[in-house]
């Protein structure tokens, strides 16, 4: 597990490869299976996740250590975090639509999907559970989001090929074969475990 003792390089490696958010830790599966039919859209989704996740982690970290902890409101954590993340995504979407038109065209449609992406809330909670400092939690979040992007782009590449295949038995077409693909990718990522003794 990640902790403050690790260097930034180790935190990145751990979150991108060794504990890959999708394939090893089973988070963000809905969007992983839903938005991965083309490489192009999965790149857009990956960029949007990197952006939103970092913003959400930073704001929830500050909120936790500046507001909830001093006031002994720890039990409000889940409720406050999810509302802050949902509100944040709305604001970002509105701001981008107004001020950053080209960026909005590239990833705007993926933003509402991210509110329901459990990985965003999970990473906000894990930053607190692992007791990471501010800088480390940002590094960890960026690593996790990069790991997500890597996994979804690889997966989309395989799915584009699978769509052309005619050799798949009927009950396995569509989702079941996608899950078997994910299983093999997960097996490959399992090969990274204990890299650097993590």
């Amino acid at each position: 597990m990640v902790s403050n003792e690790l260097t930034w390089y180790m935190i990145l490696m751990s979150s991108i490869l060794i504990n890959n958010i999708v394939l090893i830790r089973f988070l963000a599966l809905c969007s992983f299976f839903g938005v991965s039919n083309e490489i192009e859209t999965s790149i857009g989704m990956g960029m949007a996740v990197i952006f939103v996740m970092t913003l959400a982690s930073a704001s929830t970290w500050i909120l936790w250590y500046a507001l909830l902890l001093p006031l002994h409101l720890e039990y409000l954590r889940t409720a406050v975090f999810i509302l802050v993340i949902a509100g944040l995504v709305q604001f970002v979407e509105m701001y981008m639509k107004k001020a950053l038109k080209s960026l909005y065209n590239a990833m705007g449609i993926y933003l509402p999907l991210i509110t329901t992406n459990c990985a965003v809330l999970a990473i906000a909670l894990l930053n607190i559970d692992y007791g990471l400092g501010f800088v480390n939690s940002i590094i960890y979040t960026v690593g996790v989001a990069l790991g997500y992007t890597l996994a979804i782009i690889l997966f989309a590449g395989i799915k584009e090929r699978l769509a052309l295949s005619t050799a798949i038995p009927t009950p396995f077409r569509g989702h079941p074969i996608a899950f078997i693909t994910a299983s093999l990718m997960s097996l490959a990522f399992l090969g990274f475990s204990h890299l650097f003794g993590l």
Binding site: R25, P169, S186, L187, L190
Partner: peptide
Amino acid sequence: LVFIMPPGAFLTIAFMMAAHRK
């Protein structure tokens, strides 16, 4: 052992889905 590790979860649910469809 692979079945209690992450790949086993994806594999098992894939077969459950296929069985449900059939």
